[in-house]
Computed example of a mutant assay.
Amino acid sequence: MNIQWNGVMPAVTTKFTDDNQLDLVNFEININAQLKAGVHGIILGGTLGEASTLTDVEKRLLIKKTVEIVKGKVPVIINIAEQTTTGAIEAAKKAKEDGATGLMMLPPMRYKADARETVTYFKKVANSTTLPIMIYNNPVDYGIEVTLDMFEELAACKNIEAVKESTRNLSNVTRMRTRFGDRYKILCGVDTLALESLLMGADGWVAGLVCAFPAETVTIYKLVKAGRIKEAIAIYSWFLPLLELDINTKLVQNIKLAEVATGIGTENVREPRLPLIGEERKRVLAIIENGLKSRPVLPKF
């Protein structure tokens, strides 16, 4: 399957049972809700997916289960966040074996590689696989920025096709377009900049709160692409307090609480994360409850 790298692609949460095992029942409920809303891809094993807590066996099981659920309707993309080049190459190999249709790649973990090292890392992994790749550019959270000059070098790898733009610098959408034209597809990776990025020409949205509100997220994207900007702004304005739950150290706990509220998830997280308690929990629940009370009626297309 070719990946168009556009539309709404949920960075889905990983569901856990009360005894800390993968909860594939609730996972399937959420994936089906995403598909019903019309998302354009499923991304596994990102920050929201609690990838750093997952075993290799669990990641492989999630890929296989997702492929089984989606039945070829949308691409299944797995995030690669490895400490070594060898480990990343092996992860890409296993992803293809398990049926993934694409990769999202972070720079090397833990070690802060320089530009030459980072480009070499991406190139070696890209050259080891036929799977299409989206570079995850998030220097705020992961400490390494993939600059325009680095993307210039990476353009030699034809299967590096897209970027998840999470620098928090909205003008990067324009910078990428000005320098590379349509060479790279651009997907916004920051929920609170999604509408702005789409209006500046981004191709899609790797979304977080979509995990709890898939229909609203997809509707915003569709309205923008249909030129119905005023309607998109109205829904986005309602959505913004909820979207801000994604721009937080405890985004996983926040979004899982929202999934519980909309009936398509559970609150269980894997330690060292712990469920929210006290005033922090009350604050997040209040935001979610206020959003549900004023949830907009979505236009039909």
Rank of each mutant, 00 (worst) to 15 (best):
D246W: 12
L48D: 00
P214A: 04
E271Y: 14
T178Q: 14
C211Y: 05
V297G: 01
Q34E: 04
E97H: 12
V269P: 06
K124F: 05
I229A: 06
D98E: 14
E216C: 10
C188M: 15
G201V: 08
V12S: 07
I135W: 07
V8M: 05
L198I: 05
I144D: 08
E161I: 08
K164C: 09
I247H: 15
I42F: 06
P132H: 06
F239V: 09
W5S: 03
N6K: 10
K230W: 03
M104P: 06
R281A: 02
L187A: 09
R281H: 05
Y142S: 01
E145I: 10
V297N: 06
E165M: 12
L22W: 13
Y111C: 06
P75Q: 00
P214R: 00
N290A: 15
E50N: 01
I160P: 01
Y111N: 08
E152D: 15
V146C: 04
V297Q: 07
I63N: 00
E280G: 00
A126E: 09
P272N: 04
W5P: 02
K250P: 01
T66L: 06
N2V: 06
F180P: 15
R283H: 08
S237Y: 07
I186P: 08
L242A: 03
K93Y: 13
L54Q: 03
V140T: 11
V39R: 04
A100R: 03
F301S: 09
V146L: 05
K96A: 04
P299S: 13
E216T: 13
R295Q: 06
T249W: 06
L62W: 01
A92P: 05
A212L: 06
T249H: 10
L298D: 12
A155N: 01
Q4S: 14
T101P: 05
R177H: 14
E68F: 04
A11D: 07
F27P: 06
P299A: 10
G204N: 08
F213A: 14
K96L: 07
K222G: 01
K185D: 14
K73R: 09
K94L: 15
H40R: 08
D98V: 10
L223M: 05
R183A: 13
I43P: 04
